[in-house]
Every structure is written in C-alpha cells, then in structure tokens.
Design a protein around this nucleic acid. Structure first.
Lengths: 112, 112
DNA sequence: CTTATTGCTACGATAAATGTAGCAATGGAG
DNA sequence: CTCCATTGCTACATTTATCGTAGCAATAAG
C-alpha cells in the first residue's frame, strides 16, 4: 500500500505566500477537497464508498486529494481500512458546517 | 476553442444532486473562488487589483469566476467600477471566516 | 483455487487554467 | 481634438488538472 511521503512537491499550487490561510484556501479550493471532507463529516468510508458518495469522481483525483488531506493532517486511513477525519479534520469540518444552513437560504434566493 | 463566461451552462460541475450544499461546495471548490471571496472580504477591488491580490492569476479564470460569483449573487460590480461583495456574499464570507484562526493553528501543528 | 473485498495506480481522452497579448469604452491632461 | 492611462473583459496557444476506464497487489474468506 502505499505512499504518502511524496512531500517533495507539497506546494499547494499558486500561493507561496507563506500565509497559512492561503495554503488552506488553495487546498480547499481544489476539486473534490471540500466534498471529501463533507462526505466524511460523520462517517468512515472506504475508498470506493467515498467514490460513490462523491458522484463517482475518478479515483485518480480522489487518491490525490486523500493523500494531500492526509499530509495536511485532516484525514486518516484507519487500521482495518476506511477513511475518516482526524480530530483536526473534524475541527475543520465544523468550521464550514454553517455552510449547510447558508446554502439552503442561498438557493431559496437565487435558485435559477 | 475558446468559450468562457457562458452564462448558459451554469451547472456547477459534477454534482447535480439538487442539494444546495453540493452546488455551493462545487462552486467554492473551483480554483480561485475561495480566494476571490477572501480578497474581497473587506475591500472593493478593481479587476486588476484583484488580479494582483490573487497572485497574478490569469484574467481568463478570474473573469470566469467573477461571472459565476455574480450570477450566484455573492459578488457585484459597482457603478464606477470595482468588484465587491453583496450582502449575501459578505454573509458567506463570514461563514468561513473562522478558517483564518483555524489555519493558524493548523500550520503550527503540521507545518514542519 | 476462486471470489470479492481493500487501497491504489496507469494512461489516453477531455476539460480547465495559465500566460501573454490585446480589445472597446471611459476619463482626464495638454 | 489627440494622447494616454485606466476600467472591465476577451483571444488563443500552451500547459496542467481531471476524467474514465481498466487493472494491479494485498488481504480475507468460501
């Protein structure tokens, strides 16, 4: 299994400003990152279950994001398999959980 | 070939689940979207100032994102020029403002 | 052995983003 | 008026990211 020590190119794209918020914004601004965190918000999912939950996204990106999220310390792979949030990841998830409520109000206003 | 700002195909990619949170997650999960909202959090910026703030991102994507954000009702173009958040956009920005604090703690843990 | 999971990877086809250049429109300054 | 600098915005070739399908090694039964 695996590899996670790809730390050679860990430069979250775009922002090398050094400011943590930028690194975080860039990480979260990649395809499927937010979605993965959201789907893991209250469940441990296997890679394939996660794929299903994520609208059958290609495993290529999913694995890439999971690797990044693990390196960031937000996600971990459990002993007997299955991905779940770390305490830190759960904390992050809580941070944008209010988005859920906001999204509902938003759609009721601008739903095209 | 070139096609952009096609206001017709607003299908936020991937998730057509109908759930507002998914649409929002997909919108925010595009490159520069979070960053743009962040940079506009407390200032009205011209397109070029925004570009500078966003690490000189290409105007192509920036314009595309701005169009999407305007259609979503989060960003607006002021009378005399310059982009700013709408009340709704400001609300959204407040939602993930705690990320700032989180990011600081996060980096102090995982950043080697 | 076969079957069915697990996490994960290869790789050609697409879609998206980059970087550079430039447009029309507006607003001064001379 | 011309000249120039700014606004928001676009063209387009190159590069990068993502998709989609297939399949791998490892593990665990049956």
């Amino acid at each position: 299994m695996a590899k996670q020590a790809d730390s050679k190119k860990r430069s979250v794209r775009g922002s090398r400003s050094g400011r943590p918020i930028m690194a975080l914004l860039d990480l979260l601004g990649q395809r499927w990152t937010l979605r993965i965190l959201w789907e893991l918000r209250d469940a441990t999912l296997t890679s394939r279950a996660l794929r299903t939950a994520c609208d059958e996204a290609s495993p290529t990106v999913l694995q890439a994001r999971l690797t990044e999220l693990r390196e960031a310390g937000f996600v971990e792979l459990g002993e007997g398999g299955g991905y779940g949030l770390t305490p830190l990841g759960r904390e992050l998830c809580e941070t944008f959980m209010p988005l859920h409520r906001f999204a509902a109000r938003w759609r009721s206003k601008s739903a095209a």
